[in-house]
Amino acid sequence: MTRFWLGGYGAAMDGSADGIGLLSGDETAATALSYRGAVTQTPSPSWLAQHPTLDVVYAALEGDAAVQAFVRTGESTLRPLGEPVEAGDSVCHVAVSPRGDFLVASCYGDGRVVRIGIDSEGRLIPDAVNKAADLRAALLGEPLETSAPAGVAAAASDPWATSRASSDAERVSHAHAAAFLRDGRIATTDLGFDLVRIWRPGASGLALDHEVVLPQGTGPRHMVVHPSGHLHVVTEYSCEVFTLAAGRDGTWAIVSSVLSSPIAEVGTDFPAELARSRDGQFLYTALRGSNTIAALRVRGAGESLEPFALADSGVDWPRHHLVHEGKMLVAGQRSDTIALLDLDERTGAPLGIRHQAPAPTPTHFLPVR
Rank of each mutant, 00 (worst) to 15 (best):
L103S: 09
L103Y: 05
S106G: 08
S106R: 10
C107V: 05
Y108S: 01
Y108H: 04
G109E: 07
G109L: 01
G109C: 03
G111H: 07
R112F: 06
V113I: 15
V114P: 09
R115E: 13
I116A: 13
I116V: 14
G117T: 14
G117Q: 11
I118W: 00
S120P: 01
G122M: 06
G122Q: 06
G122N: 06
R123T: 04
L124M: 08
I125E: 14
P126R: 07
P126W: 02
D127M: 11
D127N: 14
V129T: 15
V129M: 03
N130S: 15
K131E: 04
K131A: 06
A132S: 13
A133M: 08
A133R: 11
A133F: 06
D134L: 09
L135K: 07
L135A: 09
L135Y: 03
R136Q: 14
A137D: 04
A138K: 05
L140H: 15
G141W: 12
E142V: 11
L144W: 01
E145M: 04
S147G: 10
A148D: 07
A148H: 08
P149I: 08
A150N: 11
A150L: 13
G151D: 00
V152A: 08
V152N: 06
A153Y: 02
A154P: 07
A154I: 14
A156E: 11
S157R: 15
D158S: 11
D158Y: 11
P159N: 14
P159T: 15
P159A: 12
W160G: 04
T162K: 11
T162M: 04
T162R: 11
R164H: 09
A165F: 13
S166N: 14
D168K: 05
D168M: 13
A169T: 10
A175H: 12
A175Q: 13
H176Q: 10
A177I: 07
A177E: 02
A179V: 15
A179P: 05
A179N: 09
F180R: 12
F180K: 10
L181Y: 15
R182G: 12
R185C: 11
A187K: 06
T188L: 03
T189Q: 04
T189K: 06
D190M: 09
L191S: 09
L191Q: 12
L195S: 05
L195Q: 12
V196W: 01
V196L: 02
I198C: 06
W199L: 01
R200L: 10
R200F: 03
R200E: 13
A203N: 06
G205L: 03
L206M: 05
A207V: 06
A207W: 09
A207C: 05
L208E: 02
L208M: 03
D209G: 07
D209V: 10
D209Y: 08
H210P: 03
H210M: 02
V212Q: 00
V212D: 00
L214N: 05
Q216W: 02
Q216S: 05
Q216I: 02
G217D: 02
G219V: 03
G219C: 06
G219I: 04
P220R: 07
R221A: 05
H222G: 01
M223N: 01
V224S: 09
V225L: 10
H226G: 01
P227W: 10
S228Y: 15
G229Y: 08
G229R: 05
H230G: 02
V233L: 08
V234D: 12
T235D: 11
E236H: 02
E236Q: 07
S238W: 01
S238I: 00
S238K: 03
C239S: 14
E240N: 14
